[in-house]
């Protein structure tokens, strides 16, 4: 399963598996982001193309107003997926 937590430090934490059956949950959260924010992926085990598309669209929209998503604590598998799609060039990743 997948869920989203809002950290006390202002970050958004993605937790679990963001597959196609869970993407609507993520979409609702990301559609409401209007300013730069850190997305903590420490507990995100899995992401597929629909989830990537949501991050992509949000980043494009935010950059139009001078804002951006920053991604932290990405696991190695997800890092590979970002590399294969060149998304690693679109985001600040720590």
């Amino acid at each position: 399963m997948f869920h989203v937590d809002h950290g006390a430090d202002g970050t958004i934490k993605l937790i679990g598996r963001l597959d196609a059956s869970q993407s609507e949950k993520a979409k609702v959260v990301f559609e409401n982001i209007t300013e730069s924010i850190t997305i903590d992926l420490k507990e995100l085990d899995y992401i597929s193309s629909l989830g990537l598309g949501i991050l992509f669209s949000t980043q494009i929209r935010l950059k139009e107003t001078g804002h951006a998503l920053k991604l932290v604590h990405m696991n190695d598998h997800i890092r590979d997926v970002f590399k294969y799609t060149s998304f690693d060039k679109m985001f600040e990743i720590e």
Partner: peptide
């Protein structure tokens, strides 16, 4: 991938990933 980032449309990502 460079083009879709420029065009702001991430089309065909799933099959692209499969092939990779």
């Amino acid at each position: 991938t460079a083009a879709y980032i420029q065009q702001k449309k991430p089309g065909g990502l799933g099959i692209h990933l499969v092939k990779q």
